[in-house]
């Protein structure tokens, strides 16, 4: 597509940094769900905007790749557009809004509705990689708990939810067990998306820039959401149908349309919704 910006290395980061990132990613893939520390660099966007995800993307991006970036499922939000434009300028790669055309998908807080393939990589932006952070503030202690697979604490948290509210109240960032060994934060995706991580064909990479951690789920890895036998995990979804495409399967956003209480529910995955609307028009 465009020629990359002069004076910058391909994909912004220098080659030594990319090698460091790739070593970290290889380690992360070798130990599914285990957080690997890395030397996160300053990126030209603030922490919380996806500095971890953008570094992982920069490390795995090649000239032949096609990049898709979504923020809360949408391709057309500020964050998604600016990250897409960033890689267009510093790497000259092709970008797309179509899930099936992309080879690398960087995401914030959603997994696309369309099933991903083996030749695709999903890169998550992660604000807090430590699933136990709210229960045990000491990093040294959580490391030990992970090493000993001592995860009773997380179940205590779920127990408390049921005791107080009658159900597990975590609707996003719902903790998962990866490969039957490591407890992992799936990043703040809705619990609705958790089942999609289980045995996904695509490689899943997680980058936390501020916390300086990378972790990964290799293709076809077992990913289980924590639950109780008599309170099984259930994905939460608004009961409405999408106002644009009529889908009753996709994850919905509630959008306020006026100041008199008017609201509509629409698909959070804009590509999924747009594709369905186009197909319906074609038939009509």
């Amino acid at each position: 597509m465009n020629a990359p910006l002069a004076g910058y290395n391909f994909a912004y980061l220098d080659e030594a940094t990319k090698r460091m990132l790739r070593r970290t990613i290889l380690k992360a893939v070798a130990v599914p769900g285990h957080q690997i520390p890395f030397g996160a660099r300053e990126m030209p966007l603030p922490y919380g905007w996806g500095t971890g995800g953008i570094q992982v993307t920069a490390a795995i991006l090649g000239p032949a790749d096609t990049l898709k970036v979504i923020d809360q499922g949408a391709d057309d939000t500020t964050n998604a557009i600016s990250i897409r434009r960033f890689f267009t300028r510093v790497a000259g790669v092709a970008t797309t809004e179509r899930t099936e055309e992309a080879t690398i998908i960087q995401t914030r807080h959603r997994i696309p509705e369309a099933a991903l393939r083996e030749d695709q990589i999903l890169v998550y932006q992660v604000p807090q990689p430590e699933p136990l952070s709210k229960l045990e503030p000491r990093r040294a202690e959580t490391k030990r708990l992970h090493a000993l697979a001592d995860y009773g604490l997380m179940h205590v948290r779920l127990y408390e939810d049921i005791a107080r509210l009658g159900h597990i109240a975590k609707a996003y960032d719902y903790p998962v067990m990866v490969n039957g060994r490591y407890l992992m934060s799936p990043s703040p995706i809705p619990a609705f998306d958790n089942p999609k991580m289980h045995r996904m064909a695509a490689l899943q990479l997680f980058g936390a820039g501020r916390e300086k951690r990378i972790y990964a789920i290799p293709p076809y890895t077992e990913v289980r959401s924590l639950d109780f036998e008599d309170h099984p995990f259930r994905p939460i979804r608004a009961p409405q149908a999408c106002a644009l495409c009529g889908s009753r399967e996709s994850y919905l956003d509630e959008v306020i349309t006026d100041d008199r209480g008017g609201r509509v529910f629409v698909c959070s995955d804009t590509d999924y919704c747009g594709t369905r609307v186009a197909a319906q028009k074609g038939v009509a």
Partner: peptide, 27 residues
Amino acid sequence: LRLNVSAGGNVGERLMAVGARHYGNIR
């Protein structure tokens, strides 16, 4: 004790740590 966890959660923690996964039984 864990002071920010209910009495029931405190008693249940050891059960869950050794693998109890049935809320009704723990309760």
